[in-house]
Every structure is written in C-alpha cells, then in structure tokens.
Nucleic acid binder design. Structure first.
Lengths: 123, 123
DNA sequence: TATTGTTATACTCTATAACTATA
DNA sequence: TATAGTTATAGAGTATAACAATA
C-alpha cells in the first residue's frame, strides 16, 4: 500500500486519477458507460461527465451499440492509448530506478512474488 | 498497484480516503498543519478544512506549539487511534483471506519480498 | 517583513432526482 | 413499463487570493 501510494504521489500526471482509471479499464476492450460506472464504483451521471471530458480531449471515442440503440460503447482512441502508455512508463520509472539497486537474488524474489500476487489479485 | 486498488475498493470505510490518509500520517507522532499539507500534497487551506472535520469528529486534537504561537500541532485522539486500527484490520482482512490459500513456500516468498520492499520504499 | 494558519470564493467530482430515447 | 444515458442541482474537496495572528 505504501509503495502504491508513493508511486501515485510521485508521478506528476497529465491526467486526473479518476480519468486515468477509466483509460485503464478500456485498455483491453470497449465497455459501456454503465459497465464503467459499476467498475469504478461511481454512479452513471458521474461517469457520464468523466467520459464526456475524455471524449472532449479525444482520448476516448463513443460508438453506437450494433443492436441496442440506448447503449454507448466507449473505446480508447490512438491518443488515449498513447497517453496510457506514457503514464505507465512514468510510473514504472520510479520503481525501476529502485529495483536497479537490488541484488539479482532480491530481484528474483520480487519477480516470484509478482507471479504469486498476480494469482492472488485474479481471484 | 492492482492489489492496492482492489483493497481500497474492497474496504467499505467509515472515513473518506483523504481523511484516513491524515490519520495515518499522525500515527507515529503529532504534526503541524503545514507539515500535513506538504506530505499529503495539498495546500494549506484544504488541509485546514480536512483537519477541521476530523477535529469536529474528535478524531484529532489541536494543541498549541510550546514556543511558536502561530503553529498548531495535530495529534490522534484515542477515538482516532481506534478508527485507524479498525480500518487497517479491515484492509488486512481481504488480503489475509487470500494469503491463507497459498503454500508455505509461497507465503515465505511474499514475506521476503515484503522485507525488500520495505527497504525500497524507505529510500 | 516573513511565516502559520484561517476565511472567502470558485472549480471539479461526486451524488440524487428528473428527463430523453430506446427496448 | 423498464433500461441506458444525459441534464439539473446540490454537497464535498481542491485551489488561489485575501486576511489575522505571531515571529
């Protein structure tokens, strides 16, 4: 928790946390506004506004659902993907610097721990 | 980062994140309003307001600085300490459940990783 | 005159309630 | 009639600017 906090504080971002979080959600595949609101634990009107800002900045694109005219599908634009990449690189940078100071054995332990935690968080 | 996020989302809290964060800062020792503002990367007026809310709820106490009359020292009240304990226990609970499912060898790796990360975050 | 903290005012993100469009 | 999303309005948390008290 402390490291996570440190990284979030460290990285001077070009995007607000709640907006970044939405980009992360859309990394793999498009989602509806309702889905995004549920996943981010926010009500529909809040997400509507957040999404509007991201569309305005051309980081997200709105698409019509093929069969249900009420639904809006949101997906990353190339600009959104680019920003996402930059943010992640910046956050990784802080950690990478510190990992370089560790011995190979210590790095190996962290690598193994990462695998374990990947499984833990997947549950 | 994903686990940290998951834990924060999981734990239904009796206190807002930014308020909780201040309690954590004051766990070890009292601090001035300015110190808190700097550490939380917030401006003085914002911290003044946050602190006012916590004092109102009797989770923090204001004290006068012994020699500098301008300074306000904030510290946890017993109620604040109690709330801090409860929150941490609740967050730990989610993680503990998942760690129980791991083998002793896996738990050992995580324990060693924790030691390493403690050093990393301390820098 | 400089520093610590508070108050005044404005902007953003959140929510609930009301509304529009589509099923 | 129910559902997906938006708009209207209000409540926090943040900021900058202005102020009060103390060094």
């Amino acid at each position: 928790m402390r490291i996570s906090r440190r990284v979030r504080f460290e990285a001077a971002s070009e995007i607000a946390p709640h907006q970044f979080s939405v980009l992360v959600q859309l990394k793999a595949e498009p989602a509806t506004l309702g889905d995004l609101a549920d996943r981010e634990q926010v009500k529909a009107p809040s997400m509507s506004r957040t999404v509007a800002g991201l569309v305005e900045r051309e980081l997200l694109a709105r698409k019509h659902h093929p069969t249900d005219g009420r639904v809006v599908l949101l997906s990353l634009t190339p600009a959104g993907q680019g920003l996402l990449r930059r943010e992640r690189a910046q956050r990784d940078a802080w950690m990478s610097e510190r990992l370089e100071g560790l011995s190979p054995a210590e790095q190996d332990i962290l690598a193994k721990a990462t695998e374990i935690l990947e499984r833990v968080v997947a549950r």
